[in-house]
């Protein structure tokens, strides 16, 4: 499968079956699952539920947030945006604030 189709924007190296296999510098590779296929795409910022992990070799990749009810995260364990209607406290998402914490409804924080 030499001579792959012209790569999509942001991609340095791609193939017909795997999509992008090496993104341009500073971008993140996201391994997008689409039914039985899984192809690489290059993004400037990662999709909902993922955060961008950079590394010195430039193999930056979108990595899954591991926090319940979280839409955007800073790292695996710290949420920056909870799902609608949930309160955030120290990077986690709560239906109601933990005991001893005051509720700030305007920013949905404890």
């Amino acid at each position: 499968t030499e001579g792959p189709p012209s790569c999509p924007k942001g991609c340095d190296r791609c193939s017909e079956y795997n999509g992008c296999v090496k993104c341009k510098p500073k971008l993140f590779i996201f391994l997008e699952r689409n039914d039985i296929r899984q192809v690489g795409v290059c993004l400037a910022s990662c999709p909902v539920g993922y955060f961008g992990m950079r590394n010195p070799e430039g193999n930056n990749r979108c990595t899954q947030c591991k926090i319940d009810n979280c839409e955007a995260c800073f790292n695996r364990n710290f949420c920056t945006k909870c799902k609608e209607g949930l309160y955030s406290h120290s990077g986690r998402c709560y239906v109601s604030c933990p005991p001893g914490q005051r509720t700030a409804n305007e920013t949905m924080e404890c």
């Binding site: 079956y17 795997n18 999509g19 296999v21 590779i29 391994l31 699952r33 039985i36 296929r37 899984q38 192809v39 690489g40 992990m53 990749r61 990595t63 899954q64 591991k66």
Partner: peptide, 18 residues
């Protein structure tokens, strides 16, 4: 089983367990 493609980069230490 059902056929399921995996991108080569999804089988790395940094891959989360999809």
């Amino acid at each position: 089983g059902r056929l399921m493609q995996y991108h080569p980069l999804s089988l790395c230490n940094t891959s989360e367990d999809e």
